[in-house]
């Protein structure tokens, strides 16, 4: 059992990850605290967006605040079509920070739900170009199967709408993906509490990505640490195998003999 736990590392593309927590870099009130927060969460992968340079902005470069020992996963946020996602992926790769790309194609501005069909088209094209592609999707089995067939390195279904902190609202659909898809399932978006991250991991998710839950916490540093512990606890529970659930009644945990009081005749 010990060996099994020690050997429990997640491989994605060519990389072996040091943990199962991914962190997003949006909405932090102070980007200078990001290295500490990323370390507190023991995050293995950090996602960043690509945006037009604002010549007037004095904001420091985000890469200065990302530790060198994490994998950088640019995302295609802002893309509304496969074509735009592919264009953003090319720009991200030209930045020279590896070949990982999180495909995110969203044209629904109210719920920010991903467009699975365009995401599949972008994934097919970028896998052929040699990218390590992690598509963000609505949890839907046939889309996930097609993404897997297309060569996606992982599949990232949402728990709840982006930035909502509403928890694992898609539990049954995510469980189906975990059961039926061979590539790692990474739950992304909507996770608000460490207990929800632990739940994903207990179910057999390969990893969890959080951003808003940490960025909007009272103390982001402490919350990153809490997520790290929760993800590790949930993973260990998954490997241990949770105990059985009784459909009714009870089952004593102590022996039913040898009471201190006299045995009744």
């Amino acid at each position: 059992m010990i060996n099994k736990l020690e050997a429990d590392s997640l491989k994605i593309g060519k990389e072996t990850l040091k943990s199962r927590l991914f962190i997003g870099t949006g909405k932090f009130s102070n980007n200078k605290k990001m290295p500490e927060i990323i370390h507190a969460g023991n995050a293995s992968v950090v996602t960043v967006a690509l945006r037009r340079v604002d010549q007037k902005s004095t904001e420091e470069n985000i890469l200065d605040n990302i530790p060198k020992d994490v994998i950088l996963m640019p995302n295609t946020s802002g893309a509304r079509t496969a074509k735009e996602a592919i264009r953003i992926a090319h720009l991200a790769k030209a930045m020279g920070c590896g070949d990982w790309i999180k495909i995110e194609v969203i044209s629904d501005n109210r719920y920010l739900l991903p467009d699975n069909q365009e995401t599949l088209l972008a994934t097919e094209a970028l896998v052929k170009e040699g990218f390590t592609v992690l598509p963000y999707i609505s949890p839907e089995l046939m889309t996930a199967k097609r993404l897997e067939d297309a060569g996606a390195a992982a599949v990232m279904p949402f728990a709840a709408p982006i930035g909502s902190n509403r928890g694992l609202r898609t539990k049954e659909l995510v469980q189906i993906l975990i059961d039926e898809i061979d590539v790692p399932i990474i739950v992304d978006a909507g996770i608000g509490r460490p207990s929800e991250a632990a739940e994903c991991m207990e179910m057999g998710a390969a990893a969890v990505l959080v951003n808003t839950a940490v960025a909007t916490a009272g103390n982001p540093l402490k919350m990153a640490e809490a997520f790290s512990l929760a993800v590790a606890a949930g993973r260990t529970a998954f490997l241990a195998g949770t105990g059985r659930v009784l459909s009714a009644g009870a089952s004593a945990s102590s022996p039913l003999t040898g009471f201190l009081r006299k045995e009744e005749a």
Binding site: G24, N61, S77
Partner: peptide
């Protein structure tokens, strides 16, 4: 078309050219 950094000094802009300069920013999703 992505322009390699080495080519920047040799690249002149013409009228109606569309120049886009992008960088990484903080962002999880959307």
């Amino acid at each position: 078309q992505i322009i390699a950094k080495e080519v920047w000094p040799k690249t002149a802009l013409k009228e109606n050219d569309m120049l886009e300069i992008v960088t990484f920013m903080g962002g999880g999703s959307k």
